[in-house]
Design a protein around this nucleic acid. Sequence first.
DNA 1: ACATCGATCTACT
DNA 2: GTAGATCGATGTA
Length: 195
Amino acid sequence: MVERIEHNLPREFYLQPTIEVAKALLGKVLFHRHERGIISGRIVETEAYLCDDPACHSSRGMTARNETMFGEPGRAYVYFIYGMYHCFNTVTGPVGVGEGVLVRALEPLDGLELMKENRGTHALANLTSGPGKLCQALGLDLLHKGLDLTGSELVIVDDGMQVAEIVEAPRVGITLAADKQWRFYIRGNRFVSRK
DNA sequence: ACATCGATCTACT
DNA sequence: GTAGATCGATGTA
């Protein structure tokens, strides 16, 4: 019996080029140690946001909202959008640069009952198949902005799972730099937000 | 101070 | 397929 080794992704992981991080995050597991129990899911869809990219929050300089993007890599950048949803990102690149990876979809693993409660639905396929949905399912909001993903109540773990094939596609919901193929997802995964 | 709009989701036709 | 919810961040004055 082979024992699976799980370890938190180290800080250096997030210092790789942002597009590489976006691809490498596919297959990793996001854990939230919630007061009421552990909620986790496997990352199946991501998008890269670079510092010279007009669609990126950091592209017009540091503000109160985006300052965590310019901080330490491996921390959580959470922002509030459309008056009711949150989106979860990992900060990438050296301090001061301002890049990140948006996590767009998860495959639910632990804490299904809590997720269903948080989302107000029982449909498995609808729990975490979008950036707003997964934040609601995991109970993530602005209070989690800045948490250290290498060791806190919110961590990203490598459990050794290998991704068979990565699809590259245009990013979703943006008008600027819409031609860039900086969305990545696991081919065939049912929890991807859009095929 | 005010107007605009967004890295979304749901409900309804 | 399309509209409406809902509000903070941002830009303009």
